[in-house]
Amino acid sequence: MTTQAQLDDRYGRTRSPRRRLLGWTIVAVLALGAIGYLGWTTVASSAASVTATDTGFTVNDDRSVSATFQITAPVGRAVACALEARDEEHGTVGWRVVQYPASDEHSRAFTETIPTLSLATTGFVNACWVP
């Protein structure tokens, strides 16, 4: 009676060490490529990221609110921010998009007035981005 190993030897179904090494080399190259790609996309996306921190707001009157905030953005890049005003029921009563030119400073502080349709109870930065 023949065993599976004898049949594999007879019909050439065994893997040579060279072929096994080639398979592991391909796996290693693909793994390193995937790690490199993920690392590059992480660095590239964080290089253009903008963060905004609300530092306060002032209700001016029934038709406007001022929002004070600080942005941290890449040096030498223009920034745009969407500002929002809400009423006591959390409904949006005002909205404004402002654009700031490129600057040599990494962090900057601003106070902007948001026109509203009715009395607002808060004003804040909804989002900032590099246009």
Rank of each mutant, 00 (worst) to 15 (best):
Ser107Ala: 15
Thr92Tyr: 03
Ala109Gly: 02
Ala78Gly: 14
Glu88Asp: 13
Ala85Ser: 15
Ser66Pro: 06
Gly91Pro: 01
His106Ile: 13
Ala73Asn: 07
Val75Leu: 06
Ala82Gln: 15
Ser66Trp: 03
Thr72Gly: 08
Glu105Lys: 15
Tyr100Lys: 04
Asp104Gly: 13
Glu89Met: 05
Pro74Val: 14
Thr68Arg: 06
Pro101Gln: 11
Ala67Trp: 00
Arg86Lys: 15
Gln70Met: 12
Ala80Gly: 07
Ala67Leu: 03
Tyr100Thr: 01
Ser66Phe: 04
Gln70Arg: 14
Val79Arg: 03
Ser66Asp: 13
Val93Cys: 11
Trp95Lys: 12
Ala78Thr: 11
Gln70Leu: 11
Thr113Glu: 10
Ser107Pro: 08
Ser64Leu: 07
His106Phe: 13
Gln70Lys: 14
Thr72Ser: 13
Arg96Lys: 15
Ala80Trp: 00
Ala102Trp: 06
Arg108Gln: 13
Ser103Ile: 05
Ala85Leu: 10
Thr111Gly: 01
Val75Ser: 06
Glu112Ile: 02
Val97Ile: 13
Phe110Asn: 00
Gly91Ile: 03
Thr92Asp: 06
Arg63Leu: 09
Thr113Asn: 09
Trp95Pro: 09
Thr68Ile: 01
Arg96Cys: 00
Ala78His: 08
Val79Gln: 03
Ala82Asn: 12
Cys81Gly: 02
Pro74Gln: 11
Gly91Ala: 09
Arg77Glu: 15
Thr72Gln: 13
Ser64Gly: 10
Asp104Glu: 15
Ser103Met: 08
Thr68Asn: 02
Val97Phe: 01
Asp87Cys: 09
Ala109Asn: 03
Val75Phe: 07
Thr68Cys: 04
Pro74Arg: 13
Phe69Asn: 00
Ser103Gly: 12
Ala67Asn: 06
Glu112Trp: 00
Val97Trp: 01
Thr113Lys: 10
Arg86Leu: 11
Val75Lys: 15
Ala85Gln: 08
Ser66Gln: 14
Arg96Met: 07
Val75Asn: 08
Ala78Gln: 12
Val75Glu: 14
Gly91Tyr: 03
Thr111Cys: 03
Val97Cys: 01
Gly94Pro: 10
Ser103Phe: 10
Thr111Arg: 07
Thr111Lys: 02
Ser66Lys: 07
Thr72Lys: 13
Thr111Gln: 04
Gly76Val: 09
Ala102Tyr: 08
Thr111Tyr: 01
Val93Arg: 07
Thr92Asn: 12
Gly76Lys: 10
Glu112Phe: 00
Ser64Asp: 08
Val75Thr: 13
Ala67Glu: 02
Gly76Leu: 11
Glu88Val: 10
Ala73Cys: 09
Glu89Phe: 07
Ala67Arg: 01
Arg96Asn: 08
Ala102Val: 08
Gln70Phe: 02
Ser66Ile: 05
His90Arg: 13
Ala102Leu: 07
Val79Met: 05
Ser64Arg: 07
Val98Ala: 06
Val97Tyr: 02
Ser64His: 07
Glu112Thr: 05
Thr72Pro: 07
Glu112Ser: 04
Arg63Tyr: 11
Thr68Ala: 08
Glu84Leu: 12
Ala80Ile: 00
Ala78Lys: 14
Arg108Val: 09
Arg108Ile: 06
Ser103Asn: 09
Val79Ala: 03
Leu83Asn: 04
Val79Lys: 02
Ala109Lys: 12
Gly76Met: 12
His90Ile: 05
Val79His: 01
Pro101Ala: 05
Gly94Ala: 10
Pro74Lys: 09
Thr111Asn: 01
Arg86Ala: 13
Ala82Tyr: 06
Val93Tyr: 05
Ala102Pro: 11
Gln99Cys: 00
Arg63His: 12
Thr72Phe: 02
Thr113Ser: 15
